[in-house]
């Protein structure tokens, strides 16, 4: 799923500007860039900053994240992302059907005995945040689109994926579930690098 690091992608011109600035100021510490939520560019920026999104996409595509970001009304389960057993659906509010609420079974923490997963505000991402099957370009666009992402600017997105307890559950999912493979601190760094580069999206 990870894309080739050095592969040239479209969007080169935008990337070029950033890389140039970064390269120029490398020895003088982080450069301040207007429009970046963090106000600076980190040295980690690669030659093709369209690829900055690739490791993020890899995390977002992990079953622990993607299972609750379907583009239909069925949450998914398991490493094979099968539809949630028991005909579970999102309901009007993303919290389940009338009497089959997420909280009918999922509580605020993982259940050590039954392995039923839990985290605060366990719910299904809204349809507008449905990511399943999207390529990196579309996934990135969906992630950034404030009309679809719950009105979050890039800084708020990073904050969300850094601090939200339901997001963090992906790294401590309990039971026999595989946690997200990228360590969370590394993921946050990837996000910040991406954000710092003005959150560029790849073309495909």
């Amino acid at each position: 799923m990870a894309q080739g690091r050095m592969r040239l992608t479209a969007g080169l011109s935008a990337a070029f500007a950033v890389v140039t600035v970064a390269g120029m100021l490398e020895s003088a510490g982080p450069a301040r860039i207007s429009g970046s939520p963090f106000g600076y560019v980190t040295p980690a920026l690669a030659a093709d900053n369209g690829d900055l999104f690739a490791p993020i996409a890899e995390v977002l595509r992990h079953p622990r994240c993607m299972n609750c970001h379907p583009r239909d009304d069925r949450p998914r389960q398991g490493e094979d992302r099968h539809p949630h057993q028991q005909n579970v659906v999102r309901g009007d509010d993303g919290l389940g059907f009338t009497n089959m609420r997420c909280t009918s079974c999922h509580r605020e923490e993982n259940n050590a005995y039954s392995a039923v997963p839990g985290a605060p505000t366990w719910h299904l991402a809204p349809l507008s945040m449905g990511w399943q099957g999207l390529n990196n370009a579309d996934l990135c666009a969906a992630l950034k689109d404030e009309k679809r992402n719950g009105g979050r600017n890039v800084a708020a997105l990073v904050e969300h994926m850094d601090k939200d307890k339901l997001v963090l559950w992906g790294w401590e999912p309990g039971g026999k579930r595989a946690p997200v493979s990228t360590p969370h601190d590394q993921f946050v760094k990837q996000l910040k690098d991406w954000a710092a580069a003005d959150a560029p999206c790849p073309k495909s």
């Binding site: 009497n99 089959m100 609420r101 909280t103 009918s104 079974c105 999922h106 509580r107 259940n111 039954s114 039923v116």
Partner: peptide
């Protein structure tokens, strides 16, 4: 609200 009582703990 309908809940599965095997998942609700006494403290809840």
């Amino acid at each position: 609200e309908v809940v599965r009582s095997c998942q609700i703990q006494a403290q809840d």
